[in-house]
Design a binder for these strands. Structure first.
Lengths: 133, 133
DNA sequence: TTGCAGAATGATAATCATTATCTTAATTTA
DNA sequence: TAAATTAAGATAATGATTATCATTCTGCAA
């Protein structure tokens, strides 16, 4: 959980805001949010900070159906059910992967920071639209 | 596994190529591959076909660290360990989620097609680079 | 303290996968 | 057959992300 290398003030700013927000957010949203807090960072700096925080293993990311990447602290072991049509994303309350059973061949070659588990399908309204149409 | 609505010839072409290829591929790669096989589809058609196949629940997608989306038939219950730095992606041999235990509140509201389970971290070479540097 | 080297930052241009638009062709239906 | 609907092709537009480059900051040695 501790960082491999120290954070710069800007990187810490981004990390702190991420911890404050109770939901995963995109880089663009972070950028806008920071402006709202009178803490104007360059857009490139936000992306660089997120990249750095990922390399430290303290920030994770997943991609929404529209391709946008959203970020959150790794501490949140939260997973989602997502509709492939409308993009509705509902969080799961518990993680079905308590003890990640990684093959012996993988473990020594990777230092695992986090995992993402996501279910995809159709939500009820979208399923009706598809079958009726 | 059966489609909710019939496939057009072009959609079937895309689906068949996906089943032929033994690995997940991007839409751009599919487009180029089809040209190589003298079956020239418009790029937009490839994207539309993939979208349609997703809605049918017979094609799944996941996003690479660079944001690119890659597609594969849903039958493959394959998952990956990915390095957040260099993007190296190694498949797992077995799925650690045999029986997806979805909360009662989710099940009736979603028809699940597939799930993605991915582990992220640093591969050994990248981990060394980070700690040394 | 001063000067230098390397990293961080900001601003903005460039990239590139994806989507939207619009026209034409194919398919279905009455 | 003709009209209506859907699919497909070509290409412009979008928009998130990355690259570039000039500037500023930081740490350290003299």
């Amino acid at each position: 959980m501790s960082a491999l290398s120290p954070l710069t003030p800007r990187q810490a700013t981004v990390f702190n805001l991420l911890k404050t927000l109770k939901q995963e957010v995109s880089a663009q949203t972070l950028y806008a949010e920071l402006r709202g807090h009178q803490q104007c960072l360059g857009l490139a700096t936000v992306y660089r900070a997120l990249k750095h925080l990922q390399l430290q293993g303290i920030v994770q990311t997943r991609s929404l159906p529209n391709g946008e990447l959203v970020y959150s602290p790794v501490s949140e072991d939260r997973h989602y059910v997502t509709c492939v049509k409308c993009g509705t994303s509902v969080p799961l309350e518990h993680c079905p992967v308590n003890e990640p059973l990684l093959p012996k061949a993988i473990t020594p070659r990777f230092k695992i920071f986090y995992h993402t588990l996501e279910f995809f399908g159709l939500c009820s309204p979208c399923l009706e639209q598809e079958t009726v149409a």
